[in-house]
């Protein structure tokens, strides 16, 4: 037994490892799901009717696929993807193994949130861009993204917080992390102190993320 903390069954080492695992899982899955979700979200916006790259085939395929992925509960996705996860990371258990389903879960979520953020951008701005003779690519990165940036920051804040919540469930595949501790010790072994400490830790993480997101978004918005 290591040195226990505040009468908890877990050690300070366990707690800090769990913290590290949570941050690792959230960070890596955020990066990958962002890399997938952002372009998909942009596609959802620009291929819709009347937009700069109107394409009913892409839109009508992408839209339901994202809805289907989003309607699968994370815990089911986690199990359903086991063969695929094993193929990618070589194992279906552990922190890395949890990242694969986390990406599958978060990417469509981010795509939808990005879509909502970018739809807020005033159509008139796109019209002005077209009048100036901007290319499709220029419209996306010189007009659409800068104008939607403040809202996009909030989108990614929401997505990150969602991922923090999902990592708790990833404990089911032995992923570790703060949420896993809360479930394994606090919930299943009735260790109230562990429960309180881990939940408090999660609350602090979420609060910090939200405040940072709000601050940055406000800074960019300049309104």
């Amino acid at each position: 037994m290591g040195n226990t903390l505040w009468g908890m069954e877990i050690t300070a080492d366990q707690l800090s490892t769990a913290f590290g695992d949570t941050l690792y899982m959230v960070a890596i899955s955020l990066i990958f799901s962002g890399l997938i979700g952002l372009p998909l979200g942009i596609l959802l916006v620009i291929t819709r009717k009347g937009h700069i790259l109107e394409n009913k085939w892409i839109f009508n395929v992408l839209n339901p696929v994202i809805n289907i992925l989003r309607s699968v509960p994370f815990i089911i996705l986690l199990v359903a993807l086991i063969p695929f996860t094993r193929m990618i990371v070589g194992s279906a258990i552990g922190t890395n193994a949890a990242i694969v389903p986390l990406i599958f879960y978060a990417a469509p979520y981010i795509a939808r949130l990005v879509e909502n953020s970018l739809l807020e951008v005033d159509k008139g701005i796109i019209e002005a861009a077209q009048a100036m003779g901007a290319t499709t690519w220029q419209i996306i990165y010189r007009f659409l993204i800068p104008e939607g940036l403040s809202s996009l920051i909030l989108t990614f804040t929401t997505a990150t917080i969602g991922l923090v919540g999902s990592t708790a469930m990833a404990g089911a595949v032995g992923a570790g992390g703060v949420g896993d501790l809360a479930l394994a010790y606090g919930y299943q072994r009735f260790d109230t102190m562990t429960m309180v400490v881990t939940v408090a830790a999660l609350v602090i993480i979420v609060q910090l993320l939200q405040s940072t997101g709000n601050f940055v978004s406000k800074k960019i918005r300049r309104r």
């Binding site: 005033d122 008139g124 701005i125 019209e127 002005a128 007009f143 800068p146 104008e147 940036l149 403040s150 960019i220 300049r222 309104r223």
Partner: peptide, 9 residues
């Protein structure tokens, strides 16, 4: 344009 359509950012 009527609503100017400037980039606020």
């Amino acid at each position: 344009f009527q609503h100017f359509n400037l980039l606020n950012s």
